[in-house]
């Protein structure tokens, strides 16, 4: 076996080791790469910027720990933007184990902006039923959550819920998606009730949501870690996504390098077979 042919058969453990090093080094040294925010992210940012102060938005945590590296920084950046503009936040989840991640982020960001639970934000909790929950929220939002927050405290006693009856009182729904719940938000909340939608999604899920954007059912789609990093840039608060982008960029380059090496090896072995 010559050198070229060996390139087609690199041991997978070597690939794993190189990948680990390429991911770890930029993280350890906090390497940063400057980026120009993409048009989708700017669109989402400008839309949120145009919402009048005191309006209410819903954020739905439709992911769990496995998609946390991409979506948690996105959530934190969006929360910073919302709280800096004094917009009320109603946090809910369509994934049972996603809610605590949302709580974690909102408590941390609310503290930075001196926002109070029940006054500036509320955690509505999780309800099973996906589209049934979305449809019922459009008719009577508090009743869908049995008129209580996640700790069974009455919503009617909370100033944050003042004047909120259904989607008509919501400026935008921001869904952070790691699965197919984004489709349901577009199909039921937007199509039936006309509520504005911004969907943040993992890089794998984002392409599934593009048709809704092109059809005008979604204001903007925030796709993957890049969108999270762009949003961090726009809110001028660098976080995990900005630092993670260097790792992601280098890993993409590495994978392309591996693909090239694999193809050189493949072509060399094909040549040998033919001769």
């Amino acid at each position: 076996m010559n050198t070229f042919e060996k390139l087609a058969q690199i041991d997978r453990r070597i690939i794993y080791l190189i990948l680990f090093i390429v991911v770890a080094i930029p993280f350890l040294f906090k390497v940063q790469i400057s980026m120009k925010p993409t048009s989708d992210v700017v669109e989402a940012y400008e839309f949120i910027d145009s919402i009048p102060e005191g309006s209410a938005v819903i954020i739905s945590i439709d992911y769990d720990a496995s998609s946390m590296p991409e979506l948690q920084p996105m959530l934190e950046a969006i929360l910073r933007h919302l709280f800096s503009r004094n917009i009320r936040v109603l946090l809910m989840s369509q994934w049972a184990l996603g809610l605590p991640l949302g709580q974690e982020a909102i408590e941390q960001v609310a503290e930075e902006y001196d926002k109070k639970y029940g006054v500036d934000y509320v955690v509505l909790g999780y309800r099973p039923g996906l589209q049934a929950v979305i449809i019922n929220m459009g008719r009577d939002l508090p009743a869908t959550f049995d008129n209580v927050d996640y700790k069974n405290r009455p919503l009617k006693d909370m100033p944050v819920m003042e004047g909120i009856k259904n989607y008509g009182n919501i400026a935008v729904i921001i869904g952070l998606e790691a699965g197919s719940v984004g489709d349901l938000w577009a199909q039921f909340a937007n199509s039936r009730y006309g509520v504005k939608l911004i969907l943040g999604a993992t890089a794998v899920v984002a392409p599934d949501l593009y048709p809704y954007k092109q059809a005008g059912q979604v204001v903007a789609i925030l796709g993957g870690l890049r969108a999270a990093a762009d949003y961090e840039t726009l809110v001028k608060h660098k976080g995990a996504a900005t630092y993670g982008m260097a790792s992601q960029a280098f890993v993409h380059f590495l994978i392309i390098a591996f693909i090239i090496l694999g193809n050189i090896g493949y072509l060399a072995s094909r040549r040998k077979r033919r001769s």
Binding site: F258, I259, Y266
Partner: peptide, 16 residues
């Protein structure tokens, strides 16, 4: 998964 994806991309993306 990222390790498997890198390894799979190396093995599967061949210009056959």
């Amino acid at each position: 998964l990222s390790f498997f994806i890198a390894s799979a991309a190396y093995r599967a993306f061949r210009a056959r």
